[in-house]
Write a protein that binds this DNA or RNA. Structure first.
Lengths: 341, 341
DNA sequence: GCACAAATTCAAAGCGCTTTGAAATATTAA
DNA sequence: TTAATATTTCAAAGCGCTTTGAATTTGTGC
């Protein structure tokens, strides 16, 4: 079923039918109804490739998925994607996932900027100095970064206040009397982890506590590395009386380590975790319920996509770059119930 | 940079340039080199929409993502997707994710079958009687199902032997002396969960143990529902001495419930879990290490995509439907170390 | 009834690629 | 050398849509 065939059956030109279908005003209501009805009956769907070729828009946003290192992002990726998808369902657009060997990532972005495969791009997990962003600011493909990076030119981003919220969490622990606070974090080359690190460190120093690098451990987001990190921290002397943990997966492993050492989380060791709202792993259901810095990564996916959509709609009208900081709540629960150690 | 421009610079026709680039034999090696080089220099990328329009292929495979209920699949979805992506990087194709309100899912599939947006489709989590499959077998869009469903016509699928592996796991528990085996499973309307249920039930009956429906609990894949299910099972009298658990997320919750009841997993209650190889949650690292039925869902994603790609390549040459069953290992670890209860 | 404007509709060009069928050139056999 | 064949190149049509600029129809005021 093509436009041509449809218009022949209607005894109208392709122009009129196309306009009727796309809601242009220069077609009479009577004709429009007639067209719409037959289109529905015939189950007509415009061919997307033809449409893209004619309009220059694909109605797809792109996400480059590095295939070697995606273990890394993964526990959060699905949830983030759900947020992206939720917005796109409203906008009636699709996601193009571009699987790319890590070694060819940059070229992939450069290609995308030229090829018109997608109308815009979403960038996740930026590094402190992100080469992808540096490359894209020079192109005219709309993109929004989930997180921030160091870049001398303006770019659109949607982030949370990682530094601020981890500063708050650290402050809370200090005010509860903790002097030795272990920190289990993501890789510091990633901006979000670096920001959290800065929030932690600066708050310690603000309270006159010397920052001890051996209390701060980086790792991939797996239960196991949470366990290993906690196990290592528990060997530290004096033993940390509190743990600050960058995500729920780490927390699982850390709590396993605590128990294995005969320590009860929340009683012998205070815990604060950053909670991205993985629906299958709820912080308030833990034993004890976990004190968290809390921010929905699904919401982030939704909001960043809304921003990208906005830039796409504006087209070449060089819109001001947007930036959005999503709320982070500090939710106090049982895992910080005791003071001191 | 278009083909036209490129061919003008070369003093060749578009035909020749197109053929040189696409490796057709009717162009001399000298010309081909010349073309390829300039194309590289100019950083030429053919416009994908134009290409699709001309060839009828998009180099995209589709995945419909129901946006309301995707909480459900999610913990496994990322890992599955990683496998899909891994194969597609080799085949140089992309994934189109089509976000769809659950209520419009079927129409979305029908549309896709007509519109030529994708070259093929991947179906996940089929129901026992799956309407999507029933609808697609009538179309000529290639698709492969991850799992199986009841359908009178042939279709391609890639699955694991859920029934067999859960039968084996149940048998192991029975032979270890367990008579009361609790089962925490996914929703029985989904075929994979139903198969597991059948494996469990038939094995019980085979050993002359009456199947007790109150020992079999269904739920969404969250830590919390694993906890609730286990808590409920522990109230059962006589108390089950073993738990069969459908995935690692459930297992987290179940073990929390056990501990809360003062029971030690593997000692007071035996546990077997199905392990999909979530890289961030490893069964052998649990405490105690978990006995599992083990099968990589990432591998499944890779294999199913390979199958789909094969069907796409074959095109209209009505290929025989393919079916593949991936291996499931029964790996015995500490969580089944004790006999009886 | 007519001239004029407004409302509808249309034919045709164009988006950037592939592919068919024909033309030009190079190669070989006699 | 010439005819016949093989090799290389080309012009043009077509994929299914949008959109421009023109043409047709309808409606208005006098």
């Amino acid at each position: 079923m093509s436009l041509k065939e449809l218009s022949q059956r209607l005894g109208l030109s392709q122009t009129t039918v196309s306009r009727a279908l796309n809601g242009y005003p220069e077609v009479s209501e009577r004709t429009r109804q007639r067209v719409m009805q037959l289109a529905r009956e015939m189950n007509y769907r415009p061919n997307p490739s033809a449409k893209s070729l004619a309009t220059g828009r694909t109605e797809h946003i792109g996400i480059v998925l590095p295939i070697e290192k995606n273990l890394f992002v993964e526990p959060l990726f699905g949830e983030y994607l759900a947020g992206v998808a939720q917005f796109l369902a409203e906008a009636d657009m699709d996601i193009t996932i571009i699987p790319t060997p890590f070694s060819q990532e940059l070229e992939a972005y450069e290609q995308l900027a030229m090829s018109g495969r997608v109308d815009g791009l979403l960038i996740s997990s930026p590094a402190v100095n992100d080469a992808r962003v540096a490359s894209l600011v020079g192109s005219n493909l709309p993109f929004v970064v989930h997180g921030r990076t160091h870049c001398d030119q303006a770019y659109s981003y949607c982030d949370i206040d990682n530094q601020g919220s981890f500063a708050r969490a650290t402050r809370l622990l200090i005010e509860l009397g903790h002097q030795h606070i272990g920190f289990i974090n993501g890789d510091h080359s990633l901006n979000y982890a670096n920001d959290r690190y800065l929030g932690y460190k600066s708050t310690l120093e603000q309270y006159g506590i010397t920052y001890d690098p051996s209390l701060c451990i980086q790792g991939e987001i797996t239960e196991e590395s949470g366990f290993n990190a906690a196990a290592q921290l528990l060997m530290h002397r004096p033993r940390p009386s509190a743990l600050l943990i960058s995500n729920m997966i780490f927390a699982l492993g850390a709590m396993r380590a605590l128990r294995q050492h005969g320590l009860e989380p929340g009683y012998n060791v205070a815990i604060i975790v950053h909670d991205d709202h993985l629906p299958y792993l709820q912080a308030d259901k833990f034993d004890p319920p976990l004190t968290t810095t809390s921010s929905s990564i699904r919401k982030a996916g939704y909001e960043i996509t809304k921003m990208l959509h906005h830039e796409i709609e504006l087209g070449g009208n060089a819109p001001a770059k947007q930036q959005q900081l999503l709320e982070v709540d500090l939710i106090i629960r049982g895992s910080t119930r005791i003071r001191r150690n």
